[in-house]
Design a binder for these strands. Structure first.
Lengths: 186, 186
DNA sequence: CTCCATACCTAGCGGTGCTAGAAATCCTAG
DNA sequence: CTAGGATTTCTAGCACCGCTAGGTATGGAG
């Protein structure tokens, strides 16, 4: 059993390759273009190999990608807020959120749009998601029952999607952020 | 050519049958369960018949369903606002929006989530969409450049989706509406 | 050198949206 | 009333999808 950790290392590396390939392909051509055949090709093996690493198939791969996205977004939140407070904090976090969604639309889609079934998602995913939500709550100074944060998050979510769908005027983006911050920084 | 309008009537009726079947199936089992084979079965014909009525295939059928949804939603807006104004109008329109999305999640999905490519949608669709947007603008009394309406719509859109995905606490729904109205009715 | 566990691939299932071309039907003109 | 042509409908199939059972190769242990 000497080659045991060598095997584990190979496994981990292949797992990375799969996730990287999935994310790259999704970024370039959307999730419907991320097929098991393409992913297998990308890592130089055949389809069944994927199921050795992700028994849940494509859905589990997407969930794994989304999980990494949660961590990245939370980090961006914390970096954006830094030592700011009040309206400046709200504006910073809103900008970070919209920038993230605009820069990685497919990643964002995996995280928040596609039916990952949030209620029954893994604990990891749930924890990461909550961390991001908490960062929003802090930026808002929402001391109440969390409804303010829910509405604020809803606004960011909706604006992200409508911007991504080309349904909001791109040149008014900054104006929207100011509107939002003015109404939610009390 | 005596049977010409009889033919047109049959065409129109079949078109209705297709759209009704699509909407019913989507409501019951989601859009991915709306297959061309099932639709053909539902109207008692085979797949190619569908393409005589909707050359664009499934995508065009979804677009047609969405178009009807726009008209319905706009009507609900006008009914909700009625003669109200100020905060009561905002609350009424928000409630109507969220109720609509909750009652017809698949219809809502066809209208606002699935990539219909809004920018290049039919003029009909564009016009209906604008009518709904204008109703929001009126309820808000947004006399500025429309950014307020965009943000408000974004909030409604995001909250709808997050509620539908089970990512917001259902029991706080009324609270969210109050929050929203308080911050957007100035 | 043999055996066996592990890793991998071949081949295929049932499903999808969509379509070319054959078959059936219906209306019109003679 | 019938022959011909236009229209409608169906049969059959393509290329693709996610996924998997079962056979084959490979490499380390005894």
């Amino acid at each position: 059993m000497a080659g045991n950790d060598a095997r584990q290392a190979r496994n981990a590396e292949r797992r990375r390759q799969i996730l990287d390939a999935a994310r790259a392909r999704a970024d370039a051509a959307g999730w419907e273009a991320v097929t098991t055949r393409h992913l297998a090709d990308a890592i130089g093996y055949t389809q069944p190999v994927l199921y050795g690493h992700f028994p849940g198939g494509k859905a589990e791969i997407m969930r794994a990608v989304a999980l990494e996205g949660f961590a990245e977004l939370t980090a961006l939140f914390n970096k954006a807020v830094d030592r700011k407070s009040g309206r400046r904090a709200v504006e910073a976090v809103a900008t970070a959120y919209l920038d993230f969604a605009a820069a990685h639309p497919s990643l964002y889609e995996a995280m928040f749009v596609l039916p990952i079934d949030a209620r029954f998602a893994s604990d990891d995913s749930e924890a990461e998601l909550r961390a991001g939500f908490d960062a929003l709550t802090r930026a808002l100074g929402d001391g109440a029952d969390g409804s303010t944060t829910e509405v604020f998050w809803g606004a960011l979510h909706g604006i992200s999607l409508l911007e991504g769908a080309g349904r909001m005027r791109p040149e008014h983006r900054q104006q929207r952020i100011r509107e939002l911050a003015a109404r939610f920084a009390d």
